[in-house]
Nucleic acid binder design. Sequence first.
RNA 1: CGGGGCGUAGCGCAGCCCGGUAGCGCACCAGUUUUGGGAACUGGUGGUCGCAGGUUCAAAUCCUGUCGCCCCGACCA
Length: 423
Amino acid sequence: MKFSKLYCPTLKETPKDALVASHQLMMRSGMIRKLAAGIYSYLPLGLKIMRKIECIVREEMNRSGAQEILMPSVIPSELWKETGRWDLYGKELLRLKDRASREFCYGPTHEEVITDIVRNNINSYKQLPMNLYQIQTKFRDEIRPRFGLMRGREFIMKDAYSFHTSESCLEDTFQEMENTYGRIFSRAGLNFKIVEADSGNIGGSGSREFMVTAESGEDAILECDHCQYSANVEVAEKSGGTSEGDRCGRCKKGSLSITRGIEVGHIFKLGDKYSKVMTATVLDDKGNASPIMMGCYGIGIGRTMAAAIEQHHDERGIKWPLSLAPFLVDIILIKAGNPEQMKIGEKIYEDLTKENIDVLLDDRELSPGIKFKDADLIGIPFQLIIGNKTIENQTIELKSRKSGEVQILNLSDIISTIKGVTQ
RNA sequence: CGGGGCGUAGCGCAGCCCGGUAGCGCACCAGUUUUGGGAACUGGUGGUCGCAGGUUCAAAUCCUGUCGCCCCGACCA
């Protein structure tokens, strides 16, 4: 990609309504734009990173044996009335009417729809277990959307639902999902903690949240310095007033500390909560009908992107991990109008592209400062700088965004060096 | 929903108290000179001052209403 062709409206100044780093930097780097409170458009750069996260999620979900599907986002009210959630869910549920005044909602979550699919198309215990997931736009009419993609009303989520004939089978998949989530967030370059959590109004048990540690996180995590206990403060409070410095209620020995975190994933067991009321049953090997056991596993894709920025940025901009970076290398031409520089830049650009390395060529005829600032802001892991010294000495400068380290390389060594550092 | 704040050019803001030709910086367009960390000069484009009503000879400015956005709280896979 050539920068001159990339639609990437960067901002020199921080929009006044953006308070946290991820929101500010997504706006400034031209990744997203706001349409309404909690509702954003994704511009090319933002979408590209979103797709990278989705790709990691897909690979790991598929590897775990789950299968991808896509359900409708608009759901008839009947299904929600069947489980009682049409009345229980409250104002957070965006309700709509079609031309014939039939009631629908824009799905904030899909237990009803998936359970309906499964009850109509699964009869025997032999067809289970099964794990189905989708990556889809959700809408929750949050009381207070805030911090950009961190808590939006419209957002992209991966939601998975598993189906089993026994508790122990559900437990196996639950464990598998915990491992899968660990792989996903590790690949995305995130530091995270797994904590005990509340399953909220979705219902269920065995609830665990994946928390990316960040000062700006909306959740507080309690951790014991002695045993393995760690939990969202919300649950800890329900199980008997706990706060920082208190004795751990689990092991009775350690003391508790508080960290802040961003909830990027949540897994929990639904049991037969939905299958029972919606009569989703299968016949067991003795011919008896029993409700299907279910598990439910969510990942906020956009929130993961925001969390990655919260963990990887400095005063100049984003420092993407290699796995999420929109481009791995930015070739900066100090003077794009100079044909010699352009020629060298284009050659390296072509060579890197042949090696399947995603590279950006900043061919804009702007002063160098702007290009350096944009490269730092957008967070491309490596900058290759072509200037007069390149012409004079046949050397090129390679700068790491993360460490700031600068290497002077011979032109002939560029490709192999880049291949090495971007592995 | 309670409390607080803000809507003036694409972005950041001043002007409002005390009514009288709508401004500044950046961005954008043209030209010239520039090019290793957001260049310089010259010339230019762009705003029914969120919207509606009221007061007034006259409203960005005063009054009423309304919509939107942000923050704190309650809330929340």
